[in-house]
Design a protein around this nucleic acid. Structure first.
Length: 257
DNA sequence: ATGACTCGCAACGCGAGA
């Protein structure tokens, strides 16, 4: 079985001990990280390599940043979203590892509405869809994992009314997320579990974690060749309850070899 | 309740996150 996970860590340096602990306890074959908030040269590579992982990083000072950790060799790396090369933000890293094509994705948040931030999000999603379509043509097992900053449906948010003016729930955001699924991708969690109100993010403020006021925005999208191998997909709430937790928690799935 | 919390920065409060 190949276990692949995605986790927005909200600073790899602030989260290093939590990440090392989770790698040891969950032992994913591949971990896709987002929101590193640091440059490549400051990524804690040695500590992670010491646990048996190869590391590929696309960093940025203070903001964004994505990485791929794998127990296998990492090859054929694509840094940045093809077709969007002039984008200065470190939000996309793709590579070949353990027989899979994988990408670590940190999709723009897009708030507030009516600003260039929302336009940037929507345009970024159009570029992602184009890349997703190109990857399908390879007829490979592809896993596009990350923080999509999209709440797919009202079943994926604790109180939909509070999010009507939020970029994560806008029809334009949801439509583009669905349009990637319509290409032929399967969202791993929902393919196996129709339970409503299961979340992957809880705000730090206002006791959101204790009240279970969360949203499900971290997703694993599988090409048909990967979806046919999907056995299980879970959200591990453990890390969110720890000291010095990220506001996101890992989502993982297992594929037959 | 224009709130709340956590992060990086070169700060000694601010912008960003979602």
């Amino acid at each position: 079985m190949i276990k692949i996970a995605t986790w927005n860590v909200n600073s790899i340096k602030a989260r290093l001990s939590n990440v090392l602990a989770w790698l040891q306890e969950a032992s994913p074959d591949i971990l896709l990280l987002q929101e590193l908030k640091t440059l490549e040269e400051n990524f804690p590579r040695l500590e992670i390599e010491a646990l048996g992982y190869n590391v590929e990083v696309l960093g940025q000072k203070s903001y964004n940043g994505v990485a791929i950790l794998s127990k296998g060799t990492i090859e054929d790396v694509v840094a940045g979203l093809p077709g969007n090369e002039e984008d200065p933000q470190a939000r996309y890293l793709e590579a070949q590892t353990l027989g899979l094509r994988v990408a670590s994705i940190y999709l723009p948040n897009g708030n507030p509405l009516g600003t260039e931030k929302f336009t940037y999000k929507i345009e970024w999603m159009d570029h992602l869809r184009a890349r997703a379509r190109t990857l399908l043509a390879g007829e490979e097992a592809v896993v596009l994992g990350g923080d999509y900053n999209v709440i797919p449906s009202d079943d994926d948010v604790f109180e939909p009314a509070r999010f009507v003016d939020d970029a994560l729930c806008q029809p334009e955001s949801r439509q583009r997320f669905r349009s990637i699924l319509y290409l032929g991708y399967t969202e791993a969690f929902r393919a196996l579990d129709s339970t409503p109100h299961v979340y992957s993010y809880w705000d730090y403020q206002a006791g959101a974690w204790q009240r279970n006021n969360g949203v499900r925005i971290d997703h694993l999208l599988l090409s048909p060749q990967a979806a046919d191998r999907l056995q299980v997909c879970r959200i591990d709430k453990g890390p969110r309850g720890k000291e010095k937790a990220s506001d996101h928690t890992p989502v993982w799935c297992e594929l037959t070899p």
